[in-house]
Design a protein around this nucleic acid. Structure first.
Lengths: 147, 147
DNA sequence: TTGCGTGCAAAGGTTTTGCATGGCA
DNA sequence: TGCCATGCAAAACCTTTGCACGCAA
């Protein structure tokens, strides 16, 4: 599964291990680098980018972009690829990105596929809206505009 | 529908007019600025960004991010009222943007709202995937990758 | 030894911000 | 007149690249 002529290095292992141990968390390259540095396994930002690039190429990690301004997020992909995984919900108010893991999603997929002949790409799709906390906050005090 | 205390300027009109006349094309801020300059209606890049920000806020324009490295694209959104409660499906293969009009959507909204406390923003959300035509095509001849 | 990997610094690109000027109402 | 808008330059930001050095095999 390894690219021919590639070496195993501590840094590469550290990055992969950190992705795995973070579960399905969304991490930026900078976060990964910082955490590894704090954990006593320093890996430069450049190297983190390069490792993630390769991992993404191999399909072990997926890269996604929310708004294009903040940094890209990387997420570990469970070995099982054809499990539907999950959708992502991005709150436009607080910027929080939340995983949506829900049994009803299968039904939604099926609906799009059967009724609209559309194969939803879960990896790329991000749903935008407002999370419960922010919606509540906005109802309490009107005029709290945020980016 | 205008923000209170906003002025109409030539630049803002020029940007909006250009978006409208470009149909549903995907344009970057730089492209818009260049074309307007070439057309004798100079609008600075900064201003283009600010106009697009506001138009996106008003829902008249949609902002797309492809990879987070190249520039974001902006696209004019038909201002029809009957487009209000519709999701958009974007085919990653042929690029076609399809309006989704379906009674089941209400149920989906309600599901997100009640089960996940998430208010879906229909204006900004685009579902990515593959339309029926392209999925069928891909099954016939393997290896037709497109961006 | 060979050649890939690493990491610093710098470059490249997009988007935002500060600030003085100009224009709408 | 009072704001808001504009646009230049510069900043902020993420990501990539050049290059010398280090390390895996």
């Amino acid at each position: 599964m390894k690219r021919a002529g590639s070496y195993n290095t501590k840094q590469r292992e550290a990055v992969l291990r950190h992705m795995i141990s973070s579960g399905g968390a969304h991490l930026t390259a900078a976060q990964i680098s910082e955490r590894l540095n704090a954990g006593g396994e320093p890996v430069g930002r450049t190297t983190v980018y390069r490792c993630l690039d390769r991992l993404a190429e191999e399909g072990r990690v997926r890269r996604f972009v929310t708004d294009g301004v903040s940094a890209a997020c990387y997420q570990y992909v469970e070995a099982r690829e054809d499990c539907h995984g999950h959708l992502h919900l991005k709150c436009e108010a607080c910027g929080n990105l939340q995983h949506l893991e829900c049994g009803a999603l299968d039904e939604i997929y099926r609906h799009f596929y059967e009724e609209h002949a559309f194969e939803l790409n879960v990896l790329k799709t991000v749903l935008y809206g407002k999370c419960g906390r922010c919606a509540k906050k906005e109802n309490l005090n009107i005029g709290g505009d945020r980016i």
